[in-house]
Amino acid sequence: MKLDDDIHNYYEHLVLAHIAQLNLPLHKEEDYIADLCCLALNQLPPRYIRYEVDMSFYLAQSERQQMEMNTQNAVNKAISFLDKSENNN
């Protein structure tokens, strides 16, 4: 088993999906997006899975909604931090 191929943090998927939903990759550079991902993910608890279907099948709807809300809050907070840093430079 190769750990980096078989296991990943489910929040990575949620963070990337929310960033795409905000259309940020169309307006921001790759370095900004990478920093944004790191800042957002560092605010969220890890939730390791092997297969996406595991989360779809075993996760309660209320827990899924909470994870999505936590992700949105973390991304928004990270955006505020990065934008504030950009404006101060």
Rank of each mutant, 00 (worst) to 15 (best):
M1R: 06
M1S: 09
K2G: 12
D4M: 05
D5K: 00
D6Y: 10
D6A: 14
H8E: 07
H8W: 10
N9D: 15
Y10A: 00
Y11F: 09
Y11H: 09
E12H: 04
E12M: 04
H13Y: 14
H13S: 08
L14V: 06
V15N: 06
L16A: 12
L16K: 12
H18M: 10
I19F: 01
I19A: 06
N23A: 10
N23C: 11
N23W: 11
L24I: 11
P25I: 14
L26Y: 07
H27K: 09
K28M: 03
E29C: 13
E29H: 13
E30H: 08
D31L: 11
D31F: 08
Y32A: 02
Y32W: 08
I33Q: 05
I33F: 10
I33Y: 06
A34D: 15
L36E: 04
L36N: 01
C37A: 11
C38K: 15
L39S: 03
L39A: 08
A40G: 00
A40H: 01
A40W: 00
N42V: 02
Q43N: 05
Q43S: 08
Q43L: 02
L44W: 07
L44Q: 00
L44T: 02
L44R: 04
P46F: 03
P46A: 01
P46Y: 06
R47V: 06
Y48H: 07
R50F: 11
Y51H: 13
Y51V: 12
V53F: 08
D54Q: 13
M55V: 09
S56R: 14
S56W: 13
F57M: 10
Y58L: 12
Y58A: 11
Y58P: 07
L59F: 03
L59K: 02
L59G: 01
L59R: 06
L59A: 03
A60W: 08
S62E: 14
S62K: 15
S62V: 15
E63W: 09
R64F: 10
R64I: 03
R64A: 10
Q65M: 06
Q65N: 11
Q66L: 09
Q66Y: 03
M67G: 02
M67D: 08
M69C: 12
M69Q: 14
N70S: 13
N70D: 10
T71V: 02
Q72Y: 15
Q72P: 08
N73L: 05
N73Q: 12
A74Q: 03
V75W: 01
V75S: 01
V75P: 01
N76S: 13
A78F: 06
A78D: 01
I79Y: 04
I79T: 02
S80L: 03
F81L: 03
L82D: 15
D83Y: 03
K84Q: 00
S85I: 12
E86K: 10
N87R: 00
N87M: 15
N88R: 00
N88A: 14
N88V: 12
N89V: 10
